[in-house]
């Protein structure tokens, strides 16, 4: 091991340089944001935007969990041509630019769209509403969760599920006692990625719902109307809201399953 390490010493500065390159923009926050700016941003729409972002992201994540988990499981466990086709089709929303997602959603959920017209009959609107924000966030975030869930379920040995069935546990009980606990580390990372993606969603959200402002939209408005100093504190709010959950999920998974480094 040590002998191998000696031959790849030149990788170390390269790796450190990459890490610094990725992290150094964060230092700008410390140098350019004052406590007073935080206060002003908070009272000037920042608090409301944070609330909107958190509420919409939580609702979106509940929907993603409830509907995305079964889809991820079926993609992992079914090997028929139909489910392979579904898997390939799921790549489209994953790879589609968020702005394009937003445009398509407006056509579909807007007042003159197929679903939008039905919603209007019930007095709901899927543009410029919290529902619109939630929909946009679901579309941006769900593919990430579904593919993470698929990978997580694929790693669960089907032999263990068979063993559980043979011991008298029903399929539902096997899912609860074996499959989900073993897939949980992978699911939690997918969940965290989806959360980060949902709370940071901008392209689809701004097309679907300029109002109510989410934090990313609020950052963009501040940047447009007041410039960088006004946008930076809002960006800090966004970071503080978006980062802890994914970090905790990744650290928890690493602590449980990843091999120790060095």
């Amino acid at each position: 091991m040590k002998r191998t390490s000696r031959h790849v010493w030149w990788l170390i500065p390269l790796a450190l340089l990459t890490a610094i390159f990725l992290l150094v923009p964060l230092a700008a926050l410390a140098g350019h944001v004052s406590w007073r700016a935080f206060g002003q941003a908070w009272t000037n729409g920042g608090a409301a935007a944070l609330r909107t972002s958190l509420v919409s992201s939580v609702v979106a994540l509940v929907v993603i969990l409830v509907f995305g988990t079964p889809l991820g499981w079926l993609l992992a466990r079914r090997d028929s041509a139909f489910w392979r086709m579904v898997e390939y089709l799921m790549l489209i929303p994953l790879l589609m630019p968020p702005l394009v997602i937003g445009l398509l959603l407006v056509f579909f959920y807007g007042p003159y769209g197929a679903i939008g017209a039905v919603l209007t009959k019930f007095g709901w609107t899927a543009t410029n509403s919290l529902l619109a924000v939630v929909l946009a966030e679901i579309y941006e975030a769900m593919p990430y969760y579904v593919f993470s869930a698929q990978a997580a379920f694929s790693q669960v040995d089907t032999g263990l599920e068979r063993a559980s069935l043979l011991l008298g546990a029903s399929p539902a009980e096997t899912m609860r006692r074996i499959t989900l606990p073993l897939a949980l580390p992978g699911l939690s990372v997918g969940f965290a990625m989806a959360f980060a993606r949902a709370i940071g969603a901008f392209g689809a959200v701004i097309v679907m719902a300029y109002y109510p402002n989410t934090l990313p939209v609020r950052v963009w408005i501040a940047l447009q109307e007041q410039g960088l100093p006004a946008a930076l504190p809002l960006a800090v709010f966004l970071l503080l809201a978006a980062l802890p959950l994914p970090l905790v999920a990744v650290l928890w998974r690493r602590g449980r399953h990843a091999p120790r480094l060095l």
Partner: peptide
């Protein structure tokens, strides 16, 4: 399967 009440052991302990 889960209603047959049998024991099953393979080469891999599972």
């Amino acid at each position: 399967v889960w209603k047959r009440k049998l024991g099953y052991v393979e080469q891999a302990a599972r």
